[in-house]
Amino acid sequence: MTFLNEYAFYIGAFGLILIGLLTILLRHHLIKLIIGLSIMETGINLFLIAIGYISRGTAPIFPVDGGAGTVMVDPVPQALVLTAIVIGVAVLAMALGMAIRLHGHYGTLDMRRIKELKW
């Protein structure tokens, strides 16, 4: 039980990453693949935040009246997650744009039927 308490966030984060990966490996519909990518990115962001957590820490923002002595969580992973979210949005936008164009060409988003290129 203590194990679960201690590692709940890691388990959740990597659970999401692996679920996303499984979705990408097993599904054929492009939109589902993109959803898988999103789930994976969410998991990674959660993982980064969890790494930076310090027990009973608060957000690393100093109030006007000093705020000395308060325990603050590690700010670096939060900055990294900010960047990672923006990058995720960029990839997501590109993927959705391609899905729109592919649907225009093929009338379907099933990757098993979008298969003109061969070895």
Binding site: L102, K115, E116, L117
Partner: peptide, 8 residues
């Protein structure tokens, strides 16, 4: 078609 498919 080819460009989009390979790009995706």
């Amino acid at each position: 078609r080819a460009g989009l498919e390979s790009s995706v």
